[in-house]
């Protein structure tokens, strides 16, 4: 088995995703949960970029408009560019709600949240 970046990276991304999901499931602090979610998101981004065939390709900036072969796939790059910005926006919104909740109740522990229990 040849050990190149292209074969190792999907396994590594899967490990990051599972690690983040495990953190979301088991942590009790809200800020820790958002950090875990961001780590899982980083794993997803790495998985998409690892599918572009980057070992034998060049950076997709064309020098000559007639020569279009030998470059990496630019489509995952554009999708992940959107994904990073939206992920940041979601994290900022969640953290704002977290700060507001802490100002109301004085806790960040998810096991102590009793507002929706009857």
């Amino acid at each position: 088995m040849n050990l190149s970046l292209e074969t190792v990276l999907p396994a590594f991304s899967l490990m990051l995703i599972l690690l983040g999901l495990w953190g979301v499931a088991t942590r009790k602090n809200l800020i820790k949960i958002f950090i875990s979610l961001s780590i899982a998101e980083t794993g997803v981004n790495l998985l998409y970029i690892s599918m572009t065939g980057f070992v034998h390709g060049k950076v997709p900036i064309l020098a000559d408009p007639t020569v279009t072969s030998g470059y990496v796939d630019p489509l995952p790059h554009a999708m992940i560019l959107t994904s990073i910005v939206i992920g940041t926006a979601v994290t900022a919104l969640g953290l704002a709600l977290t700060a507001r909740y802490h100002e109301r109740t004085g806790t960040l522990n998810v096991t102590k949240m009793k507002e929706l229990k009857n």
């Binding site: 572009t52 997709p60 900036i61 064309l62 020098a63 408009p65 279009t68 072969s69 470059y71 990496v72 796939d73 630019p74 489509l75």
Partner: peptide, 17 residues
Amino acid sequence: GESLLVQAPAQSGAPNA
């Protein structure tokens, strides 16, 4: 991605795909 690389310089004029 390949057809994007072919069409991008002709349609948009941008070298960065």
